[in-house]
Simulated assay, not measured.
Amino acid sequence: MKMPFELCLATAAKQVPFGPDWIHEIKHDGYRILVIRDDKRVRLLSRNGTDWTRRYPWIIQAALKNRQQHFAIDGEAVILGVDGVSDFNALQSRKHDHEAQLYAFDILAMGGDDLRDLPLHMRKTKLEQLLARRPDGITIAPFERGEIGPDLYRAACRMGLEGLVSKRRDRPYRGGRQRSWVKVKNRAPPSMDREL
C-alpha cells in the first residue's frame, strides 16, 4: 500500500542535544504506526506501509470515538507490562494485539488541513486539542522541553527504557531521515527475559 504521508525518521546520535530548542520524548519499544481517520474509516499503517488495521482493535476504537472525523496521527503502538514499561516481546508475540495502545507523538493532518508545515510545538498543541477527551487506546506520548534532555536520558536508561528521541521544536514535519529528530539509544538495553 502506498503511504499517504512519508514518515519522519530520527537520525541516530551518541549524545542527547542540549538547549531550549529541543523537545525530548522517551523512546518506547514498539511499532511505528500511522493512524488515519476519514469519517467512519480508520486505517493503521506500519512504517513501510503495511496495513495493520485489523491488528490493533483498541487503537481503532479510540480513533472512532474521537469527535474529529478526519486526522492523521504519527505514533508508536506499544503494550505496557505490569511495570509500565513497553514490552516488545508481548507485542511481537501477537498474543496481546487487543492490548496494544498508541503513544501519539505527532499530528500530520486534522479536519482537512495538512499540518506538516507547522513547527513541532504547534503540532503538539493541535495533538493535545485532538486528544483532550482522550479515550483509552490513544495517549499523548509525554515529552519534556529544553535542557532536561541529558538528565532525562540517564533516568530512562536507569529504568531500562529504550532511550530518548529529541526533536527541534521549531521545525516542520518532513519525510525521511532528519537531523531535526535525533535518537539516542540506551547502550545497555533491557534484556529480553527481564524479571518483572
Results as ranks from 00 to 15, higher is better:
4 P>D: 10
119 P>G: 11
43 R>L: 12
66 N>A: 15
54 R>V: 08
14 K>D: 14
154 R>Y: 07
191 S>E: 13
144 E>D: 08
164 L>T: 13
23 I>M: 11
92 Q>I: 08
143 F>S: 15
107 I>V: 14
81 G>T: 09
1 M>H: 06
106 D>S: 08
184 V>R: 00
8 C>E: 07
81 G>L: 07
85 V>N: 10
120 L>W: 00
146 G>E: 14
114 D>F: 03
79 I>K: 01
23 I>P: 00
4 P>W: 04
175 G>A: 05
12 A>Q: 10
159 M>N: 12
54 R>H: 11
95 K>S: 08
157 C>E: 11
43 R>Q: 10
54 R>E: 09
142 P>F: 05
52 W>V: 06
45 L>P: 00
32 R>C: 04
4 P>V: 11
44 L>F: 05
75 G>K: 01
161 L>E: 01
37 R>N: 08
148 I>S: 06
140 I>S: 06
2 K>R: 14
174 R>I: 10
65 K>E: 10
174 R>E: 15
23 I>T: 04
67 R>C: 10
180 S>H: 05
159 M>K: 10
186 N>P: 10
13 A>Y: 03
102 L>Y: 04
171 R>C: 12
25 E>G: 04
184 V>A: 01
79 I>H: 01
22 W>A: 01
93 S>N: 14
9 L>N: 02
105 F>S: 00
62 A>D: 01
7 L>W: 00
63 A>D: 03
110 M>I: 07
26 I>K: 01
40 K>V: 10
171 R>H: 15
89 N>F: 10
152 L>M: 10
117 D>M: 11
76 E>L: 04
79 I>F: 07
33 I>G: 00
143 F>L: 12
190 P>D: 08
10 A>S: 15
60 I>R: 00
174 R>V: 13
158 R>N: 14
13 A>D: 13
94 R>D: 13
96 H>Y: 15
178 Q>M: 15
59 I>R: 00
195 E>R: 13
52 W>E: 14
120 L>E: 00
2 K>C: 05
160 G>E: 02
185 K>I: 04
158 R>S: 14
146 G>C: 11
124 K>V: 02
90 A>K: 15
186 N>S: 15
186 N>E: 15
182 V>G: 03
165 V>E: 02
170 D>Y: 07
44 L>C: 09
160 G>R: 02
191 S>H: 13
111 G>N: 13
56 Y>A: 02
69 Q>E: 08
86 S>Q: 09
